[in-house]
């Protein structure tokens, strides 16, 4: 017995999956180097290109889009606010700052160590943010993203200050502007971890939904709120730092994708999470392809393209609500 919601949800899932497959194929075909599907079986070089560059890049994009979208969704549930995502709670900026400090103070540390520090920094940033917004009344929904953006920009100023003084601005800008053009086999594998974490979110999806229903309901249904809260935050921090360290920051994915999916099929996480992941992947992949094609053979970073798309969608979401009480 399928309800209308479930049917729509299924449609969205399959639709997104189909779009994703299509875009996947397109992504493999697009690029500066000469590549043609026909030659794939004739010339070994084509396989090389596919395996070392095109395939890793496409996987990286899909994983990034999916996990960032899921991270945004988790945050929105945890903080009970529709208009936030990792770059709007200080997580992304704290991770960059953490990476910068590690690069300056312990340049010899392994990637895993640096990444863990970044994740810890992201977590710390989010905790400070949550302390800050405790001062806001619960009805001030739109204050939270505002405070978040400002909070993020303050942390970023601190990072830029350090970068200016230590002449590492170039390094910082790599983490700041998300870009897939440098993705090669052997340089993106961490993103699979991000994908796994998004999957982990799927496993605790029901508990996250209950958490989002409020304190009373959670306690009533026997949920260990603190554990789930921490689990969610840690997942978000890890995903954020994994993405930042590998490809850089791509703001607004985590914001707009969950909101679009929510408009279409509602808030039941277990149902909508696959759609969120799929749609996130589809959108980021589209933007990256556009970035590769629009000024061929030059590449425009995905963060630049998505910056435009993301803000337009965000504005549409904000302005459409003029009829509702916030």
């Amino acid at each position: 017995m399928q309800t209308k919601m479930q049917a729509e949800s299924r449609l969205l899932n399959w639709g997104s999956a189909a779009a994703l497959l299509l875009l996947f194929a397109v992504s493999l075909s697009v690029g500066v180097a000469d590549f043609s599907w026909r030659n794939l079986f004739a010339m070994p070089d084509e396989w090389q290109l596919l395996l070392t560059s095109r395939l890793p890049r496409t996987f990286a994009i899909v994983l990034t889009g999916a996990s960032m979208a899921v991270a945004g969704m988790i945050l929105q549930i945890l903080m009970k606010n529709r208009f936030i995502e990792p770059s709007m709670v200080g997580a992304t900026q704290s991770a960059s700052l953490g990476l910068l400090l590690m690069a300056l103070l312990f340049p010899a540390a392994t990637l895993m160590v640096k990444m863990s520090v970044a994740a810890a920094a992201a977590l710390a940033g989010m905790l400070v943010f949550m302390l800050l917004i405790r001062r806001l009344p619960p009805t001030a929904q739109l204050m939270v993203p505002l405070v978040g953006i400002i909070f993020g920009s303050i942390i970023e100023s601190a990072a830029v200050f350090v970068a200016y003084e230590t002449e590492t601005l170039q390094l910082l800008s790599v983490w700041h502007l998300g870009d897939f053009s440098g993705v090669l086999l052997g340089r993106y594998e961490l993103l699979w971890l991000a994908g796994l974490l998004a999957l982990a979110a799927y496993l605790i999806a029901d508990r996250l939904t209950i958490l989002g229903l409020g304190e009373t309901v959670s306690i009533n249904l026997g949920l260990n709120r603190q554990t789930i809260l921490w689990a969610g935050l840690v997942i978000v921090a890890l995903i954020t730092s994994l993405v930042v360290v590998t490809v850089g920051s791509i703001p607004f994915i985590g914001l707009v994708v969950p909101n679009i999916v929510s408009r279409l099929v509602g808030d039941k996480l277990r149902q909508s999470l696959p759609a969120v992941a799929l749609l996130g992947a589809v959108l980021v992949l589209s933007c990256d392809i556009i970035g590769r094609l629009i000024r061929y053979p030059f590449e425009i970073p995905v963060a630049t393209v998505f910056g435009v798309l993301g803000t337009v969608l965000f504005l549409a979401l904000l302005m459409k609500r003029s009829g509702h009480a916030v």
Partner: peptide, 25 residues
């Protein structure tokens, strides 16, 4: 007020983003 400021801030980011895109074009 919060709504107006937030929309303003996002507009600001939008203008910055699209300027960046146009410049790259």
């Amino acid at each position: 007020l919060a709504r107006m400021i937030l929309i303003g801030v996002i507009f600001g980011i939008f203008f910055r983003s699209i300027t960046g895109l146009l410049q790259r074009l």
